[in-house]
């Protein structure tokens, strides 16, 4: 196949900044982000099951390892690296630190992004709702009890600051 049919120039917004890249059809979103020196989305299971490669596209979380890079053409791509661009950690990030909600940290960006997604849709989730929402993220260090605490703590902080 002629390269011109498999390679494409795409333009998208990356953490609020317009960017472009020339990518082959088989390149996935994790590969693409690596070209921008963003390493927070990481391929682990390669099957969309562990959540280590979570990326938010047009406000919707997806598995970067199962997303073809060419398909983000024209879209808004947000990664973990975009959360603290002001220099301050997000309330979720801070809650994860305060509750010690990780060990090795490899899965943490995915959990943090998914927690943001959850709290945007459900500002006061119950524990079963937290478990249901985060069931698609795996932590082999099994910091799950701490993660659940961190989600609850982040939720109450965010509700408090929204009320203020």
């Amino acid at each position: 196949m002629d390269a011109s049919e498999t390679v494409k120039k795409i333009r998208f917004t990356l953490n609020g900044r317009p960017v472009s890249a020339t990518v082959e059809s088989h390149v996935d979103l994790v590969d693409l982000l690596r070209r921008f020196d963003l390493g927070g989305a990481r391929e682990s299971c390669g099957q969309g099951l562990c959540g280590c490669c979570t990326v938010v596209v047009d406000g919707v979380a997806m598995s970067g390892c199962l997303t073809l890079a060419q398909l983000v053409d024209g879209k808004r791509v947000d990664t973990i690296e975009g959360l603290d661009q002001t220099g301050a950690l997000s309330p979720v990030q801070q809650a994860f630190i305060d509750e010690g909600a990780f060990q090795c940290g490899f899965c943490t960006p995915g959990f943090v992004l998914m927690t943001h997604q959850l709290l945007e849709r459900n500002p006061d989730p119950s524990e079963p709702e937290i478990r249901d929402y985060l069931a698609g993220n795996l932590c082999r260090c099994a910091a799950y009890p701490e993660i659940i605490r961190a989600v609850k703590s982040a939720a109450s902080r965010m509700r408090a600051s929204a009320a203020a």
Partner: peptide
């Protein structure tokens, strides 16, 4: 809290990966 906590929640911790 872990000394490297900030690097881990921001996705900036370095792994050979």
């Amino acid at each position: 809290p872990r000394l490297e906590a900030r690097q881990k929640v921001t996705g900036r911790a370095d792994y050979v990966h």
